[in-house]
Design a protein around this nucleic acid. Structure first.
Lengths: 125, 125
DNA sequence: GGTATTGTATTAATCGCCTAATACAATAAT
DNA sequence: ATTATTGTATTAGGCGATTAATACAATACC
């Protein structure tokens, strides 16, 4: 059932947000598609329904989801938003990466090579 | 006094660890150098001495610091360890970066270009 | 119209972190 | 030897965030 292992470095609801946000922006949950109910997701991930509710409510604030009572929750139909969020996440990811790399005083060229290598490595998986 | 702003995404002692670990591996705290006392650091960063103590104790477990009672705490003199830790941190950073990039289904080449650009940008600062 | 299923709201309990206060231990400095 | 400064240990308390338990509300569906 538990497709995801949670660590305690971060609240569960945030970890769920990360998982589901990625599902949405990567298209594994498609535009307009209905996502499982709060209770089903809770059962699937082995967490409390309220924890799921919180995660989903936050994703709603990001407008990646919206809900109709009794119908359930649906993925946004705004493709532009998705692309925008995806880019924004990418930008934030890069920024954080660069900042931390700077903190370690890593050599730029060497770093880029290592990143490239790591990307190719994962390619195979 | 407060050189660092703390967020509440992570315990303060861990944020302090990050700051000081980087100081050590990047040489801003040099090998064998004495670091300020627990009480001084507490005052400098505006936190409780116990919080500082915890952070420093953890860094000692990583062998980046060691302490002589009354003398104070010193940075390790083991340069190899420093290099090793630095590389390990770099590797972990890259791994995390690649994993998250994969989750977003980003294009590899485009991603590399953006990283390169971001690195050059920060160069100027 | 009844009912099941959905999201939502409210309240309570738990847990970790941080702070605080204090005392102790060791030793360099004088 | 005395003293000041250092790290260390212990205990307690409180605060906030997270999770849990439960009840409520709306409505599609039959």
């Amino acid at each position: 059932m538990a497709k995801v292992e949670f660590d305690n470095s971060q609240p569960i609801y945030q970890q769920l947000m990360d998982v589901w946000r990625r599902k949405i922006v990567s298209g594994r949950w498609q535009l307009g598609e209905r996502v499982p109910s709060v209770r089903d997701l809770a059962a699937e991930y082995g967490v409390n329904p309220n924890t799921v509710q919180r995660a989903l409510a936050e994703l709603e604030r990001e407008e990646l989801l919206f809900s109709n009572r009794t119908v359930g929750r649906l993925v946004t139909t705004d493709e532009n938003l998705l692309l925008q969020v995806r880019e924004q996440l990418a930008k934030a990811l890069i920024k954080q990466f660069v900042t931390e790399a700077r903190g370690l005083q890593l050599n730029d060229n060497q770093l880029l090579k290592q990143v490239a290598a790591a990307l190719e490595e994962k390619e195979e998986a």
